[in-house]
Design a protein around this nucleic acid. Structure first.
Length: 439
RNA sequence: GCUGUGAUGGUGUAGCGGUUAGCACGGUAGGUUGUGGUCCUGCCAGCCCGGGUUCAAUUCCCGGUCACGGCCCCA
């Protein structure tokens, strides 16, 4: 028995139905914000990702060599491939560009619930525009998406790495260094909330503990835009520019007009997103239902295009949405609140089984075709059982209606249409127009 | 990378050092040659893989695989 590789999944028709509904929903929301879908290869040159994330990522990749010894890898994410595509195909396209993408990504990691070796990401990038308004456009799309798919109780956390960077460099930490620049170390520790580690770092760099206290105060701010005034006071105490904070304030103001109010929106200046190519606003969305793997979406403003010789497009802004995780959260929430439809719009359209009963099936084929041409979902019965068994089968397979055509029906040019949901039965003329009118 | 728990037909489960491995759902064929979501019957289909202990292993032991948790990390 050959089984699926670890961390991968098969999607049966029932599961796929839900996933397609979800994808369609995200797609239509992206389109309504002007984001156009693109697609890139499943595998790329290994260099693409080491250039973006450093050589350390290789151990997390499905990297391999092809028959000509090219170093390739299955893609672990979609931002870098889209950047690559822009540099190869869209250099002269008018900017800004609004692009969306959806597809599977691969990471060689231990699989668990909500964390697979093959996982799906939906994302968008707004290329060649920066600043609070561009960021607000991106964040508002993220919120619109989560809101429209019925997700509840999620928390949006918005920060600005410029604030942290200004503080840390202002304190004298260097942005250069091996193996990790002190500023990056500090941001990582702040993101994790590791205050002991940070105290240690500060002590070894000769930074006063009062700076640590101020940072802690900054981290403890809890709330939306109303916390920005307190943040300004702390920044003044640290003798740091308010510029980044002012940008954040403008972003939040724009966001409140552009998107529905999320269940929880918190300014968190310690969100550092781990990755050093983020330059401005950063944001992430968490859902409590998922426990340790609760982050369902993340993004921000970043500088990556310079890697492809497109310095003038930096910074750009985007986010990735964890397709599988949002679905898991929706399923958990649907269960909790007793909602039968997990993804809005997943309920299949009514469908009809056309059943030739003890007659030559060819007599109904043109009707089947015409009903399909009219837009109905129609199946021709292929089992040729008796009526009781066929109704049973049709019911188990989710049909809404069964059109029964027997010898007497054929003779009188009539047919019976049984609605399996209501149990009602109608007799109409044996032609597609009459049948269509009662489906 | 560390660590805990688990694995019996397609699904959910019972069970035991020696069993024709039980049950329910499911699938399939009939009972019923024009009306289902009732009933009855037959059939299909299982002890994750590899070693070890034993007269005998699905059961006990070890290793692997896979799944689900907790750290670490990330998305």
């Amino acid at each position: 028995m050959v089984q699926r590789p670890r961390g991968t999944r098969d999607f049966t028709p029932e599961v796929m139905n839900r996933r397609l509904a979800f994808e369609n929903l995200l797609e239509s929301m992206a389109l309504s914000h002007g984001f156009k879908r693109v697609q890139t290869p499943i595998f790329e040159s290994l260099d693409l990702f080491t250039a973006k994330s450093g050589p350390g990522v290789v151990k997390q990749l499905y990297a391999f060599q092809d028959k000509s010894d090219r170093a390739l890898t299955l893609r672990p994410e979609l931002t870098a491939p889209v950047m690559r595509m822009i540099s190869e195909e869209m250099r002269s396209s008018p900017k800004p560009l609004r692009l969306s993408y959806f597809g599977q990504c691969f990471r060689y990691e231990e699989s668990k619930k909500g964390r697979y070796r093959e996982f799906f990401q939906y994302g968008v990038e707004l290329i060649g525009a920066s600043g609070p308004l561009a960021e607000a456009e991106v964040v508002s799309l993220a919120i619109d998406m989560l809101d429209s798919c019925g997700l509840v109780d999620y928390e949006v956390r918005i920060g600005h790495v410029g604030v942290l960077r200004d503080i840390l460099t202002g304190l004298g930490l260097s942005e250069e260094g091996e193996p990790e620049p002190p500023v990056a170390s500090a941001m990582r520790l702040l993101d994790k909330g590791d205050w002991d580690g940070l105290a240690e770092l500060f002590a070894s760099s000769g930074i006063s503990s009062s700076a640590l206290d101020n940072l802690r105060k900054l981290a403890e701010l809890d709330g939306g835009s109303e916390t920005l005034d307190s943040a300004r006071e702390i920044l003044s105490a640290l003798e740091v520019s308010h510029e980044s904070l002012d940008e954040l304030a403008e972003l939040l103001a724009a966001l409140s007009a552009l998107a529905p109010t999320p269940p929880s929106l918190k300014v968190n200046l310690c969100v550092a997103r781990g990755l050093d190519y983020y330059t401005g606003m950063v944001f992430e969305v968490n859902v409590a239902e998922l426990g340790g793997e609760g982050q369902v979406l993340g993004g921000g403003s970043y500088r990556l295009l310079h890697l492809f010789g497109l310095e003038d497009l930096d910074p750009s802004c985007g986010f990735g949405l964890g397709f599988d995780r949002v679905l898991l959260a929706l399923e958990a929430q649907a269960e909790r609140v007793g909602r039968s439809e997990v993804v809005p719009g997943e309920t299949p359209r009514p469908s009809t089984l056309v059943m030739p009963f003890k007659i030559d099936a060819h007599a109904v084929l043109s009707i089947v075709k015409e009903l399909r041409d009219m837009g109905h979902i129609v199946e021709l019965d292929l089992r040729g059982k008796n009526i009781g068994k066929t109704l049973d089968w049709a019911s188990k397979n989710g049909f809404t209606n069964v059109v029964i055509v027997g010898p007497q029906d054929l003779e009188n040019s009539r047919c019976s249409i049984k609605n399996l949901t209501t149990g009602d039965q109608n007799e109409v003329g044996l032609d597609s127009t009459s049948i269509s009118s009662v489906l």
